[in-house]
Structure formats: structure tokens, C-alpha cells
Computed example of a mutant assay.
Amino acid sequence: MDFLLSCYSSLTLSFFLLIIFTGVSGTILTVVNNCDYTVWPGIYNAGGPILDSRGFELTQGSSRSFQAPTGWNGRFWGRTGCNFNASGQGSCATGGCRSGQIECNDMDLATPVTMAEFSLGLTNGQDSYDISLVDGFNLSMRIEGRGGQGTCLFPECVND
């Protein structure tokens, strides 16, 4: 199955893309920044192995991919207006980790924050995904599924 996550801001058409390709070795997650500014995606691993990053800088037009094995469970969110020093300490205007690190070490986030949640192969071998506003809204998001079995709706949250 292939998923596409886009975040939209009120100033740009698309902010943040997440593409997932599922195969026998797991799922490749690709985050792409289509905004006209830098974003700092955060990643929380709720179950399964930790991905090779928990937070990073993503300049306009750039992308980063991750290999997520079946059984991975986690969340992605966008942070904006961040400023980190050479040791990865700093802060963000929205979505920042309270630890003040670029590599978030927990889910103690400065709210509000829009969250994309994924569970890969945990429910009868099926992948599931959603957009959560439980912790508030800071960025618009869209998730699109491609491939796999059946027809799925694409969740989207374009404003609070």
C-alpha cells in the first residue's frame, strides 16, 4: 500500500508530504516539504523499532525517506519556526518538543499540534492511518492511500 500525506498551510498549496510504499521488507516513508519555508518534522515511535530519526530539518523542496517494518506504530507532525544550535538544542514556534531537542525523545509536545498517526500491519495485517486533532491544530494535513486492497478515503484537515 502507498500513502501520501500532505499538509497545507493557508499560505502555500502543500506543506508536507508523506509517501508510504509497502512491500515484503516493510514500508518506506518519505517526507517531502513543498512549502516555501523550512519545517522540522517530528517522529514518535509508539511501537516497533525506532526509525533512524525522531526529528530533523527539512528545507523547502527537500525530502527524507525511512524504512518502517511491519508492526511499526507511530506519529508524524510538523514543527515550524524552529531554531536549533549545533548540539540539537533549541525551540520551535509550533509543535516543538518540550525536551527542546531536534530529535524528540518523547511525546511531550508544545500544543497545539496536528498529528498524523500510523499503524503498519497491526490490525489483521492491515495498515491504518488518521489525522488527529486531539492535541489541537497547528498545520493542515492530508493523507492519501495508494495501492493495496480496497478503496480508502483520504483524511484531510485543511483548517482548525
Rank of each mutant, 00 (worst) to 15 (best):
S63K: 10
L109Y: 13
A93F: 14
C104F: 07
D106L: 10
F56K: 04
E117W: 03
T111K: 15
T94N: 07
S63G: 03
F3C: 05
Y37N: 09
R75Q: 14
V32M: 10
S25W: 04
L18W: 00
V32I: 10
R75T: 07
D127T: 10
Q67T: 13
G42K: 00
F118R: 00
D36I: 06
C35L: 13
Y129R: 07
T80A: 13
G61C: 13
I131N: 02
I20M: 13
L122E: 10
A110K: 07
F56D: 01
V113N: 03
A86N: 09
L133S: 12
V39C: 07
F21T: 11
G55T: 05
A116N: 09
N45H: 10
W77I: 00
P49G: 12
S53N: 11
R79P: 10
Q67C: 11
F16R: 00
T12C: 04
E103Q: 15
G61L: 13
S87K: 10
N105V: 14
A110Y: 01
V31S: 06
G23T: 10
I43H: 03
L29V: 14
V24F: 13
D130E: 15
P41W: 12
R79K: 06
G47V: 05
T30K: 04
D130T: 15
P112I: 02
G71W: 06
V32H: 01
T22M: 07
D36V: 10
T59Q: 14
G55C: 04
G81F: 01
N85D: 12
T111N: 15
I20S: 12
S128T: 13
T38P: 07
G47C: 08
I131G: 05
L58I: 08
S14R: 11
F76N: 01
L58W: 03
Y8F: 10
L133H: 04
G81M: 05
D127L: 07
I43F: 12
I20W: 02
Y44L: 15
G81N: 11
G48A: 04
W72V: 02
T80L: 11
G90R: 02
T111F: 14
G90Q: 03
T59D: 14
L51S: 03
A116I: 01
L58P: 01
